[in-house]
Design a protein around this nucleic acid. Structure first.
Lengths: 176, 176
DNA sequence: CCAAATTGTTTTAAGCCTAAAATGTTTCCT
DNA sequence: AGGAAACATTTTAGGCTTAAAACAATTTGG
């Protein structure tokens, strides 16, 4: 539709692209490019945030992310909840929590009504440190996205919501 | 400007938000939400692609990404080039290449004009396997983004380009 | 009631990833 | 020429991440 492709696809000119669409090896180069650009943006921002967190607070991004989840849940969360929210594996959370309990940022206890469940919370220290980091973090993000107008931001939010829904649908389709 | 904030910022009503902008503790909640949504989308798609690559081809995403870089460079690339393109650390590439040479997908040789430099290329096997994977990969991406119209895709490309430029500028600002 | 399925978590094995230090090579400058 | 700076890569130490298997506790359906 727009970008010229390198002379790779060996198909000859389509005479009737409308009616023969189903038989054409479809061109998804645009979607591919979109995915790469999405990934680039995320990698870029994530790398910056990671580096600043390390330099300023000597903390890793996964630890910060975990604390961010807990900050929104004053009554604590189960490990499964955290793992779903963060979209990482269960085993990953186990280790992360271990280290944060060790450093005094988290409190972990077994649920009294279901002894399978571990409930974790921020400690006073953990909450205080997180708030300090979060405040600065917000300014970094603002700076990283500074060239976007409020309209750009709104539009991106809308399109990314649509993207997320599309991807979730596709993922569900595969699982079924 | 748009979303109501929880009663956290203790400042009283602004009478003149235009002229006093510099003194207000600024609200960057929208950018923060945008960042989280961007991250969610990427994580979602990345997770799907990772899982499908493993199931269908028993290959990891980083290996696939590295082969994708090399497929575009028939004359090979240096490790530094690869590391810059992939936006990962040098040491990371060293290990990745090691394993791919081991499995017969990559060929690595020391440059004859500069003995510091290692040039890597896809082997015949590596190229063939990559092409097979890439063809399928493209259909996965198309499916994951299927609900986006061509216009959505164009608009996202534009806005993400702007986002990338903004983030790069911010990162450069910090490094200087 | 009790076996089977389900759920929540941890463990394991392997690989990915980073920052920083170390190593080897080339270039630059006087 | 010869030492300093720059460059490309590897090594190191530590942490992150995953999938799959193992374990423990609860729920479910005969």
């Amino acid at each position: 539709m727009s970008a010229p492709l390198p002379a790779v696809s060996g198909c000859t000119e389509m005479l009737d692209s409308e009616t023969k669409a189903a038989e054409t090896p479809e061109d998804h180069a645009e979607e591919l490019r979109l995915w790469l650009r999405l990934l680039t943006c995320t990698t870029l921002v994530e790398g910056e945030v990671r580096g600043r967190l390390r330099q300023r607070f000597d903390v890793t991004l996964p630890r910060f992310d975990l604390m961010a989840q807990l900050d929104k849940a004053p009554d604590g969360m189960t490990l499964s909840d955290v793992s779903k929210r963060m979209m990482v594996s269960n085993g990953n959370v186990t280790g992360l929590v271990e280290r944060l309990v060790e450093s005094g940022h988290l409190d972990r206890r077994t649920s009294e009504t279901d002894r399978r469940v571990q409930v974790i919370r921020l400690t006073k220290l953990g909450r205080a440190e997180f708030r300090r980091m979060a405040a600065e973090h917000e300014t970094w993000i603002a700076d990283l996205f500074a060239d976007l107008t409020p309209k750009d931001v709104r539009e991106l939010m809308r399109l990314l919501a649509k993207t997320k829904a599309s991807a979730q649908k596709s993922a569900a389709r595969r699982r079924s």
